[in-house]
């Protein structure tokens, strides 16, 4: 079952005495075919779990790097159905890393929640994160995910109250996604000073559920620092911006190198 593959990845990292490395990529940037190759590059670089973003026309939770990436992916013809076809193809090739689909609600809602979850599970997706569906609005997609054995990943932010944090943790499976700072996705010069306190609060609420931290984690140094505080570290924009060059092949090499540096920095840090 998919959710178990996700949990096993965090358990394995923990058994190795390290935090799981979770890189994010926008699927379809610049094309789905290239994304297929980039997934292999991330696996070779030491990723434990990969978050695959579904491009959306109006990504309100994303900063400029991921916005531009989504625009390139949409210009390249990517659709949610296409992303699921890519996942099917990668699984047929034997691609074994857990995959979390990170999507805005509307592409999935347009497919129909039931149909979306059924097709995602059949393709080989392991977990779903609906970035603009808070726990209060999640009954239908979350029930479908649970029935299909998919992980349901919810977010916790510095502005999340204790009551809502408990609800998000209870509704999450696979891991709890902790937002490291106020604001949208993107790179940052330094981690938020309050991150340690927030993460301590999130971890208490999560109990046995792994917590992964993202939003603004950019450099190997920041990843290493975040790895000391959380069970997993998500790096998105800092990798996605490497896809802005005009040569997709060279972009892929840069992506592999940067991901390997992040993974190495995290491996030197025990959590």
């Amino acid at each position: 079952m998919a959710k178990e593959r996700l949990e096993a990845a965090f358990k394995k990292a923990a058994a190795d005495g390290r935090s799981a490395f979770v890189p994010y990529l926008t699927a379809g940037d610049p094309t789905l075919e290239w994304t297929g190759r980039y997934l292999d590059a991330l696996a070779a670089a030491g990723a434990d779990v990969i978050e695959l973003g579904v491009p959306f026309s109006d990504p309100v939770a994303d900063g400029p790097v991921n916005q531009r990436s989504a625009e390139r992916a949409l210009a390249g013809g990517a659709t949610l159905a296409g992303v699921l076809t890519l996942v099917t193809a990668k699984r047929a090739e034997g691609f074994a890393l857990p995959l979390v689909l990170f999507t805005y609600a509307n592409p999935a809602a347009a497919m129909g929640w039931e149909s979306f979850v059924r097709r995602a599970a059949a393709a080989g997706v392991d977990g779903v994160l609906l970035v603009d569906v808070p726990v209060e609005e999640s009954a239908e997609p979350a029930a479908a995910c649970r029935a299909a054995g998919l992980g349901t990943i919810f977010l916790a932010a510095p502005t999340t109250s204790a009551e809502r944090l408990a609800a998000a943790a209870a509704a999450s499976s696979g891991f709890l996604y902790c937002v490291a700072r106020l604001g949208v996705t993107g790179t940052s010069a330094a981690l938020d000073a309050g991150l340690g306190d927030d993460l301590a609060r999130f971890k208490r609420a999560a109990g046995a559920l792994p917590v992964a931290v993202g939003f603004g984690v950019s450099t190997p140094e920041q990843a290493a620092a975040a790895a000391k505080l959380a069970d997993g570290v998500i790096v998105g924009s800092a990798l996605v911006r490497l896809l802005e060059g005009t040569d997709p092949e060279a972009n892929g090499r840069a992506l592999g190198t940067a991901a390997a540096a992040l993974a190495a920095a995290m491996r030197r840090t025990s959590c």
Binding site: V60, A61, A105, V131, D132, V133, P134, E136, E137, F154, L155, A156, A157, P158, T159, T160, S161, R164, A168, V179, L182, G183
Partner: peptide
């Protein structure tokens, strides 16, 4: 819940839910 029939709701990123 902010519903008008089946429409409406609060589909916001988590950071905005508290506010």
């Amino acid at each position: 819940t902010g519903r008008f029939g089946r429409f409406g709701g609060r589909y916001a990123p988590e950071t905005l839910m508290g506010p």
